[in-house]
Design a protein around this nucleic acid. Structure first.
Lengths: 188, 188
DNA sequence: ACTTTTATTGAATTTAAATTCAATAAAATA
DNA sequence: TATTTTATTGAATTTAAATTCAATAAAAGT
């Protein structure tokens, strides 16, 4: 394996470790030294791989803006069925691919006030709300979703999902909720 | 006005200022100097009123564990009606008594990972979930709420509410959601 | 008016954590 | 094998923010 690949692999290891710690303890309570110890490597070496703590955060957010998790509705299946399936997917990741699940939770955390501005802006730009608004409007036209401001409904929907996923990540023993509960928020 | 009363009044002013800043910018991003400047007073004087930043946080959490916001169900009205009314109350505070609304959001924030341990424990101990579980079970017996693990349902319900309230506090322009949407999560 | 207590400030200190650095080891390359 | 580049460490430095402090003003009590 070439040196560049080695380095890339190490970077990934650091990113995954940081992701876990950020989700489990929060960004500010996770010290560079904590991440280093968990990898494990010396604190100083962390700066050979990432310029700064904020840079590390930013790289994670960039990862989060790609990969799975984006809402791409093809318009064929009924909106309610689509969202239910989407939630089923996320929740099953909680067990099978904690990484994906943690990334969801993480992105929600970074979107909140108090997080470093640049990372926050980037996370905010990858929000699921906008694509969901159309989907909700279609559902309303089809009569499967209730009347109401579609934008507010979309925001409430994802805010609920985020809240619930954080609850789940804070207590990994918690029983997985039925996606239908959440989609019921929108149903006519 | 006696000196002790004066001091108490000043403490309250600091607490309210801190509450606002904590909710709007987050705990770690709010510096003692920021609170002092907003009150306004010198940074040093803050320590005449509170021992430390954590002490200030703790006092706020203590306030949050008292006053309105606790779920006290008297068992007479139907559970779904009760919860809808409760949410209506919270949401109307958002406009009329931002202080109460902010306190709700704040308590939810403190319950999360990454907040100072003592404050977090105290906030966690004042959780609304436990009283809600009974209420949900009654609703299930009455047939107004769907079948399912009542504990998980209660946790999801409040996690949703918390998520939505944070969304509202992050964007004060956001339209208030219909409480019915959220209660629908539980309906049969 | 005089003394004691409390409020207030802004500057100095401390502290915790991020970041840099000099030195060394290991690996790649010539 | 000699040389250059990269990885690694642990200690030193920097930095930002909390906290303390010495000095002063204002108020309360005598």
């Amino acid at each position: 394996m070439t040196r560049k690949e080695q380095k890339e692999e190490r970077r990934q290891a650091i990113l995954m470790t940081a992701l876990t710690l950020f989700v489990e303890r929060g960004y500010y309570d996770t010290k560079i030294a904590d991440i280093a110890a968990a990898v494990p490597m010396s604190t100083g070496l962390m700066f050979h791989y990432f310029e700064s703590k904020e840079d590390l955060l930013l790289e994670l957010v960039k990862m989060g803006t790609q990969g799975p998790g984006s809402v791409v509705y093809d318009g064929n299946i009924p909106p309610d069925v689509y969202l239910t399936g989407f939630l089923n997917g996320i929740f099953s990741f909680a067990k099978e691919q904690p990484w994906v699940f943690y990334m969801f939770v993480f992105m929600g955390q970074v979107r909140r006030v108090g997080m470093p501005e640049e990372a926050r802006r980037l996370a905010l730009s990858a929000d699921a709300v906008t694509p969901t608004v159309k989907l909700i409007k279609k559902g309303q036209k089809d009569g499967v979703f209730r009347k109401g401001n579609a934008d507010t409904m979309a925001r409430c929907f994802w805010a609920s999902v985020q809240g619930i996923m954080e609850e789940m990540s804070a207590d990994r023993e918690m029983k997985t909720p039925d996606p239908e509960w959440i989609v019921s928020m929108l149903r006519a």
